[in-house]
Design a protein around this nucleic acid. Sequence first.
DNA 1: ACCTATTGCTAAATCGATTTAACACAGCCT
DNA 2: AGGCTGTGTTAAATCGATTTAGCAATAGGT
Lengths: 346, 346
Amino acid sequence: MKEQKGQEMKRLSLKDVARMAGVAPSTVSFVLNGKARQMRISEELAEKVMAVVKKTGYQPHSVAVNLRTGQSKTLGLMVESISGSFFAALARVIESEADRYGYHIVYCSTENNAQKGGELIKMLSRQQVDGYLITPAAGMEKDIQQLIAHKRPLVLMDSYFPDVAAPHVLIDNFGGVKQGMEHLIDRGSKQIGFVTVDMNLVQMQERMKGYKETLRSHSIPVKNKLILELPYDGDKEASVRKIRQFIQSNKGLDALFFATNYLGILGLECIAGLGLKIPDDLAMVCFDDHDIFRLYPPGITVVQQPIDEIAKTAMQLLMNQLDKSQRALRKTKLELPGKFIKRGSS
Amino acid sequence: MKEQKGQEMKRLSLKDVARMAGVAPSTVSFVLNGKARQMRISEELAEKVMAVVKKTGYQPHSVAVNLRTGQSKTLGLMVESISGSFFAALARVIESEADRYGYHIVYCSTENNAQKGGELIKMLSRQQVDGYLITPAAGMEKDIQQLIAHKRPLVLMDSYFPDVAAPHVLIDNFGGVKQGMEHLIDRGSKQIGFVTVDMNLVQMQERMKGYKETLRSHSIPVKNKLILELPYDGDKEASVRKIRQFIQSNKGLDALFFATNYLGILGLECIAGLGLKIPDDLAMVCFDDHDIFRLYPPGITVVQQPIDEIAKTAMQLLMNQLDKSQRALRKTKLELPGKFIKRGSS
DNA sequence: ACCTATTGCTAAATCGATTTAACACAGCCT
DNA sequence: AGGCTGTGTTAAATCGATTTAGCAATAGGT
C-alpha cells in the first residue's frame, strides 16, 4: 500500500522481486519457471521467492519474455471477413480454444483480397506470431508457400491450394453437396439449378463437382443453362437481378442449390420478389447454414458446416506443430463431414 | 540469394545492417526513424544506410522495439461475443480503422461474463496493449475504473457506467426507441408491448426509459403487463415460450417493440408459431438491425445502429488519448443518433 | 594562438526477462 | 594436504532495438 505514492509507479520487474527476496534475478527466474529442482535451488529459498511473488502480485513482462525466448504466445488468425457469420463463428471457437492452450489471438481480415492478405501475413510475421490460422483468399498461394518454406507453424481452414503442401482442415465440400443433391433427387426434383460464385478456390470447385457428379451418377444430364456463376465482387443488386433472370429463363426449374449462404440469402430475396412459394414452386437447399435459414418460413434446408470441429481440429494441428517434441504431422489434410439439416424448403 | 544456405537463416538485425553499411547501429536506427536530420547524419551516409536497408529488405524486430519503447502498436478489442452480428460488424470497422492508424488488434470476447472480462483485461495488460476498446459487461465497473486510475487509454462502446468517468461512444438509445415508438403511435397502435432483457446496463435502462416516456408524453398509461423482461442467459426455448405466453395473455396487443435484435428474432419465431400476420395482427419494431429483418417478409422495421460512426469515433477518441501531445479529452461522452428504417412490419 | 561551438558520428546504457558458465564451499578419497 | 565431485547460488551474456552522453574533428571568434 505504501508503494502507491510516486507519480508513475513503475511496473514491478523481476529484478525488484529479486531484491526484495534478497536473491539474484536468475534465482527468481528459475523458481518462476519451475526449474528450481533442476537448478538445485533449496526448497527454503524457493518458498521465500514465491512468497514475495505472491505478496507483490508480480507478473512477468511478456514482451521481455517474448524477446528473450522468441515465443510470443500469440497466434495470427486471418479470415475472409470477420463480419461473415461463418468466419465470426469460427473466430469465436478459435479464440476460446487458443485461450485454453494459453495463446492469444491477433486477428485480421483479407476481405478476399490476395494482396491485402499478403501484407497482413507480413504484418503478422513482424508481430512475431507463433503460428498462423488462415482462411486463404484466391491468389495467396505464394504467400502460403513462403510460410511453409520458412517452416512457420500454419493451418489453413475452409480452403487450401492443391499445389501447396500445407496442413488444412475443412468441410467435405464434395460430400456435402452430394448429400444435398441426393436429397433433392430423392424428393423428386427433376430440374435442379446450381447457383455458385466465381471464386477460384478449391472449395468452390468441389461444390461444383459435387453438383455435377451427383447428377451424372443418377444419369441426369448436366446442363450449363442450369448453372449460374455470379461474380464474387459484383454488387448485390446486380446479383439479385441475375438470379431472378436465371430463375425466369429456366422454365422447368423445380429446385435450386445455392453454393454459399450469401447466395442463398440473395436467392430468398429473388424468390420472394417473384412471388414463388417454397417448396411448392421451387425447392431450395443451401450450403452453409445461417440464422435466417432456420427462421425464414418454411425453413431452408442446408448443409451445415461443422464449425466447432473445424476450429478445434485446426487448433490441434497448429498446437502439434508448435510442440517441438512431436513435429512430423506436417501434411495433415482433413475433410470433415457436413451435417445435412432438412427443413421446410425441400 | 547466397545467404540462403545456413540451416536456420537467422533474421537480419539492425546490427547486421549497420555492419553491412559500415556504420554504427545507432546511426541506422536514427536514419530509419527519421531522426537523421536531428542527429546531423550526413545525407550521404543516410543514403548509404537506406540503400542497404532496401537491398536486404530489413524489417525492425517489433518485439524489441516494443520492449525498448514501451509501445506495442497493439490495441485490445473486447466485445460481448464476436459471433453477434453487431459486434462482428463493429470489429470489422475497428480493424480497418486500426490498420489505417498503424495499429494491430488483439481481440477477445467477454461472453457477457464480468469475471471473464476482468481476466481478459489483465491478459491484455500483460500483453502490453497500448489502448483498450471495450463493450463492457455488467459488473465490470471496477475493472474499468482501474484502467482509468492507471491512466490507460480507453474507450467504451455500446454502453458505459454512469459512475465511471470513461470516454464512451454509443447510439442514442433513448432517442432511438423514442423514434420507433412515435412511429408506432402515429400509425395507430394502441397497445404496444415492450420485450427487453434483464441486463443491468445503461443502454437497456435507456431503452426502457424511451419506451415509458414516449408513452407518457402521449398520455398513454404505462402498464407493467405490457412489459416483458427476459433473463439474459435463459435458454432459447424458454424465452420463446415466455414471449408466446406474453403475446397470448395480452388480448388487445397490437404492436411489439423488441429491445434487441436477438429478442426480435425470437419474437419472429413466436409470431410465426402463433400464426399471426405481421403487421395486420401485430406490428413490430426492433432495436438494432439484422440481415433477417431486411429479408423476413414483410420486412421488419428497425432502429439501426450507426456502427461505422461508432467504430470510427471510438478509434478517434482512442487515438487522441494515445497522441500524447493532445491529452485532455478524457471525459468525452458521445451519443450518436440511430437510423430509423421503416419496413413492412409496421 | 587559444578557447568555444558546431558538426558528424558512435559507444554504451537500457528495456526485462532467460540461460550459460562460473564460483564458493562442503564432503570424500587417497 | 591436495585433488575431485557435488551443491547451492549467482554473475554476466543475450535477445534487438532506442537513446543519452560523449568523442574527434573542424570552424569561428577574439
